[in-house]
């Protein structure tokens, strides 16, 4: 019971770290100079929201998944679901990363 509790806490910590890492990388890769990490909420829509991302940004995020986490998206249309929010993206990376 104690071990299960510790594992859950470790998973939660890893997830929080991954979300923070993702926000940092997205700001850097997409050149969002005027955006601070705190302004990106975990459940905010990445597209169609305040970040002003466009279709080229979506392609750049596909490259980021491949380069940083070893995830190859064969179907770019799948990006629409994965890039819904930081929360959804982080969960997908946690479940599919190869590096």
């Amino acid at each position: 019971m104690v071990n299960w509790h510790i594992d859950t806490l470790v998973n939660l910590k890893e997830m929080e770290d991954l979300k923070l890492e993702l926000k940092t990388k997205i700001i850097e890769v997409l050149n969002l100079e005027d955006v601070a990490i705190e302004e990106i909420k975990d459940t905010d829509p990445l597209f169609g929201g305040g970040l002003g991302l466009d279709s080229i940004d979506a392609l750049e995020l596909i490259v980021l998944l491949d380069k940083e986490y070893g995830i190859k998206l064969a179907d770019p249309k799948k990006g629409k679901e994965i890039f819904e929010s930081i929360e959804v993206m982080a969960k997908y990376i946690q479940e599919n990363r190869t590096k």
């Binding site: 997409l30 940004d57 750049e60 490259v63 491949d66």
Partner: peptide, 8 residues
């Protein structure tokens, strides 16, 4: 890792 954002 060809960058779409640079390519354009």
């Amino acid at each position: 890792f060809p960058s779409p954002a640079v390519f354009v």
